[in-house]
Amino acid sequence: MAEMLLEKFKALVPKYLDEKWTPQEGYSAEELGDALAEAELPDGVRLPLVLEEFYRALGRCEELMEAHHFFFDPDELEVEDGHLLFLEDEDERWVWGIPVDILDVPDPLIRRRSNKQKHWNDEDATVGEFILDLLEFSFEED
């Protein structure tokens, strides 16, 4: 399958960290597969292409993975409330996920849940759009 946002994700390292992207910033396909096996996701649950590319490009880049929010490491991914959870805010008030019934969409729509109220809301963005916008917001200059 053709790449979607892999190069855009890689370009975030020089854009926000003023460093050259290196393969050490992300996971190889084999390393990602091993980490996902450790997550013990339910049968049939796979990453959408956009999340696979995100982890391959930036999955080990702590400066981006933990900038005012926390992307789950691949071995920490979990399914809860019918959603694949992959992102949480720094205060653990919100969690973001993808409905498991649309994980086969290459860049599916993202949803946000209040950890207090346990209510899901649509973000009106795809996962890729949301990640790019979130990182841009996190690194905006005052």
Rank of each mutant, 00 (worst) to 15 (best):
E78R: 09
D18M: 13
E123F: 05
P48Y: 02
R56E: 06
T22P: 11
E66N: 12
P23E: 11
L36E: 03
M65A: 01
E30S: 12
M4R: 06
I102A: 03
E7M: 13
L6S: 00
E90V: 13
L134K: 11
E92Q: 09
C61S: 08
R60A: 01
L134N: 08
M65C: 03
P23W: 04
M1G: 13
E3R: 10
E38W: 02
D73P: 09
E3V: 11
G59C: 03
A37N: 10
K15G: 06
K116W: 15
P42Y: 03
T126H: 00
K10A: 06
E88W: 10
L32W: 05
P23V: 04
R111Y: 15
E66K: 13
D75H: 08
K118M: 08
I98E: 01
Q117A: 15
G44R: 06
Q117P: 07
W120E: 10
D43E: 15
E19P: 09
L12K: 08
L12H: 07
I102F: 04
L87F: 14
H83G: 00
I131S: 00
L32R: 00
D124C: 10
S28A: 11
F54Y: 12
D73G: 08
E40M: 07
F72M: 12
D142F: 13
E25S: 15
D104Q: 14
V127H: 00
F9K: 03
N121T: 10
E7N: 14
R111P: 08
E88H: 09
E19K: 14
R60C: 02
E40D: 15
E76V: 04
D34H: 10
Y27Q: 02
G26T: 06
K118P: 04
E136H: 14
F54V: 04
S114V: 09
F70W: 14
L64E: 05
V127N: 00
D43G: 14
L103A: 04
L32V: 03
A2F: 12
L109C: 05
N121F: 15
L47P: 01
A57N: 06
V79K: 02
F72L: 15
D107E: 01
F54N: 03
R93Y: 15
L5C: 05
P23D: 07
S114W: 11
M65E: 00
D81S: 14
D75G: 06
E31I: 09
H119P: 05
P74L: 06
A39T: 05
L5K: 07
L36A: 01
L17Q: 09
V13N: 07
D91P: 09
H83T: 00
D43N: 11
V127W: 00
E19H: 10
A67R: 15
